[in-house]
Design a protein around this nucleic acid. Structure first.
Length: 354
DNA sequence: AATACGGGGTT
DNA sequence: AACCCAGTATT
């Protein structure tokens, strides 16, 4: 791994944190450690939706509630910016308007439609999910969490996103944004806590849990940013335990109280690299330059095969960049094993046709 | 708990 | 050039 470094994990913080409902006494004037408002879900929801009405981003396609469209957007948006996902999903769904249409397509066709999005295994997983929906759900996107979770490529986030956005289920899709905002409100990033508050908000959402999710995500994108959050502009500041704790103002203060890698710290959370100044970027213990990684090679080979005429066999001979012939053949074999590629008798390759 | 998995956009 | 991104599956 050389590129995506530092997915911020959420190590346990301290053990004794207040429950959501009891975070603070109403109007706790003399308590600098407590939010100035108790954590009433309905009040928090109203603040969120009011803010969203005038400050939410306008993202074409976001309000589409069609289950298939929602599923495609959510799978694409895994580790991919939402505006790009929405645009790509529109094109993709024009080519594959239903789960059945995608289920009937070859891996190669799907991979070509996926071009530019990265994480290509998501494309194969989505196709596999489409096949499962044809097989088990009459060609429809299932509407319950358990069935959604059973689909390939659908995890805790995506399952809840589809359930909430397409079917109005009162569950919160917790992504990096929701985790940050609600983790700060609670001053506690533990996933179970964040999920519980999220679900509480979803249940108070009066049939539109997706709107709450959108509000939280837009808030995270522009105001409750990872670094230097604009707390003075935040509709939730009255409820925010993290801000009340002083961490937001103190910035890098209390480094010891904030877990390494936590998504919670705001300004001042940047840490200098451990690497000594002047030492090579890729020392013995350092990351490889990206073009030297297997990841890069996979991307190159997949791009070559995607750009070849559909159905045509390609002779794939090394080297590619710093990767020798053996590495190239090994990677092609891996891609074949994983279902991206098929090989003929003489070792030529093409994107899989079935 | 760690690691693999992409590619494009932003700063 | 580093950092970020509506995560998931596998080890």
């Amino acid at each position: 791994m050389t590129r995506g470094r530092r997915d911020d994990r959420l190590p346990r913080v301290r053990s004794g944190t207040p429950a959501p409902g009891g975070a603070a006494a109403p109007g706790a004037v003399g308590a600098p450690d407590a939010p100035s408002s108790p954590l009433d879900p309905a009040a928090l929801r109203d603040a969120l939706l009011d803010w969203f009405a005038s400050n939410g981003r306008s993202l074409p396609g976001r309000d589409d509630r069609d289950p298939w469209h929602v599923l495609v957007v959510e799978v694409m948006s895994q580790q991919t910016q939402i505006d790009r996902s929405l645009a790509a999903a529109a094109t993709f769904c024009a080519a594959f308007p239903t789960p059945s249409a995608l289920a009937a397509a070859s891996p190669g066709e799907v991979l070509r439609a996926w071009a530019g999005l990265g994480y290509n295994r998501r494309a194969l997983a989505l196709r596999a999910a489409a096949r499962a929906m044809v097989e088990r759900h009459g060609g429809r996107v299932p509407d319950d969490l358990a069935s959604l979770l059973a689909l390939p490529g659908v995890g805790p986030y995506t399952a809840r996103a589809v359930a909430a956005r397409a079917f109005g289920a009162t569950v919160m899709p917790v992504d990096v944004n929701v985790r940050r905002v609600l983790g700060r409100v609670l001053d506690d990033p533990r996933p179970a806590r964040v999920q519980a508050l999220g679900d509480l908000l979803a249940r108070s959402a009066d049939g539109r849990p997706g709107a709450i999710a959108d509000a939280l995500m837009d808030l995270a994108a522009g105001t409750c940013r990872a670094r230097e959050p604009a707390c003075t502009a935040c509709p939730l500041s009255a409820w925010c335990g993290w801000r009340a704790s002083g961490a937001a103002v103190a910035g890098r203060a209390e480094q010891g109280s904030v877990p390494r890698g936590s998504a919670l710290p705001g300004s001042g959370s940047r840490r200098p690299a451990l690497r000594a100044p002047g030492s090579p970027v890729s020392g013995p213990a350092g990351a490889l330059p990206f073009p030297r990684t297997r990841r890069w090679l996979r991307g190159q080979l997949l791009r070559e095969l995607r750009e070849a005429p559909p159905g045509a066999w390609s002779t794939v001979e090394g080297p590619r960049g710093t990767h020798d012939h053996a590495a190239v053949r090994e990677t092609i074999a891996t891609l074949a094993r994983e279902g991206f590629v098929e090989l003929d008798e003489v070792g030529r390759a093409r994107l899989a046709e079935d």
